[in-house]
């Protein structure tokens, strides 16, 4: 075994044996860690990383389609979390939602710069992107924990589900989804729009807003 063992917090993944939904089960713990992080507590920040980075990394890897980009954006994301933790308001949003929003915004910004030609899409990325993509329905079915949104998602007609999943999990634009599914752009836009509206209605119908996690 090499001695490159990282210092204090990581070895992420060594702790949890059973899949845990960090959105729900650890909401209070994560919120508390964010409050401590805002006060400059490095140990709390390390623990926060340990608990939340495996979910965020999984999301970023699919979104960006490339391991090294996901690592870079995860790094950006936690630097940002350390710097802006004082803005987190536990009464307004779940901690994982807040952190996932930071991660997704950074990732989508990178995709936007790539679209604009400001970030290179090199050969490795071009070669890996299609390979690494699981089918969106498989991704959806893989160990779903966020039950309510899953149930609502599964209630959607398959094309709407697929459109939403390709956009959400794989960071595809409308036109990329259209290309992937071999459908006209207008059709895909309408699937995504109707899917979002149906999802909203379903989520609102099943529980009051204050019960959100």
């Amino acid at each position: 075994m090499i001695d490159a063992h990282p210092s204090t917090p990581p070895a992420p993944g060594t702790q949890s044996t059973a899949p845990v939904d960090p959105w729900a089960a650890r909401r209070d713990e994560l919120a508390g860690l964010l409050v401590l992080t805002a006060r400059g507590d490095r140990d709390a920040f390390g623990r926060l990383y340990q608990l939340s980075s495996p979910t965020l990394f999984a999301m970023l890897r699919r979104l960006l389609g490339r391991q090294s980009w996901a690592e870079e954006i995860l790094q950006e994301c936690f630097v940002s979390i350390w710097q802006h933790a004082s803005r987190y308001d536990r009464d307004r949003s779940a901690p994982m939602t807040w952190m996932a929003a930071i991660a997704r915004n950074a990732a989508l910004d990178l995709l936007r710069r790539r679209d604009a030609g400001e970030a290179p899409l090199d050969d490795e990325a071009a070669a890996q992107r299609p390979d690494e993509r699981p089918l969106p329905l498989e991704a959806l079915q893989a160990g779903l924990e966020a039950r309510r949104v899953r149930e609502c998602m599964q209630a959607l007609p398959a094309p709407q589900q697929q459109g939403l999943a390709l956009a959400f999990f794989h960071g595809m634009s409308h036109s990329e989804v259209a290309e992937q599914l071999d459908q006209p752009l207008g059709t895909v836009k309408s699937w995504v729009r109707r899917g979002l509206l149906a999802l909203k209605a379903c989520l609102q119908g099943t529980s009051p807003p204050e019960a959100r996690t």
């Binding site: 949890s16 959105w23 965020l56 779940a94 959806l140 779903l144 966020a146 999990f169």
Partner: peptide
């Protein structure tokens, strides 16, 4: 929360 459906 959909992101939590992914395996860690």
């Amino acid at each position: 929360p959909l992101a939590s459906s992914l395996p860690e």
